[in-house]
Amino acid sequence: MTNRRKFLIGMGSLAAGSAAAVGSGAFTSVSANRDVEIDVEGDASAFLQITPAKEGESNTPNAAEYVETGEDGTVYLDFSNTDESVEGAGGSGLNNDATTIFDNLLDFTNQGTQDIEVGVVNDGSTPGSFYAENGQGNGQSDNTSFDVDDFGNGNSAQVIGPGEAIENVGFYITDPEDFSALDDGSFTVTFKAVRTGGNRD
């Protein structure tokens, strides 16, 4: 009887010693499932908000005409024709051998928590160019560039803080033949936002 009690006491100290050993021990692999709750939103309410350019409460004329929102919530640009219900309208495409400029198409708003640079990824494979407000694609030096090549440069890149927006981004095209050469007359552009500054935020 007394022996048994002593044994149990001994077990107790052994278990404690064992647990300490486990705490510093080798392991071959750990696989841990963790919950990730993600809300996927349309462009209008995402961290990087992309919306038709506004003029007061309503869309700018160009945004109203050329910017559409698909069923999946993404915006897209449609330059293929104009609204024929508008008196005198009814164009169905770009002029050949001409430079066409569309001001005031899109607003980009930073709905994150840090400063970001925003631009378009332009690797030269797609026709035309995007530009920030009233730049009409002509400026690398006057803060109008919207080209991702300028990322990290700090001089010409568009930097916006939380709640701030780059407004009235436009699109221009100097070689409309590039459009005609596309398979179905459409292409995809990639807009990009990258936090500015250091590593750990």
Binding site: A26, F27, T28, S29, V30, S31, A32, N33, R34, D35, V36, E37, I38, D39, V40, E41, G42, D72, G73
Partner: peptide
């Protein structure tokens, strides 16, 4: 190709010798 919505997903984090 995702659709809008709220998703409860699981990510498995693995550490292997």
């Amino acid at each position: 190709d995702a659709t809008t919505g709220d998703y409860d997903e699981t990510l498995t984090i693995v550490a292997e010798r």
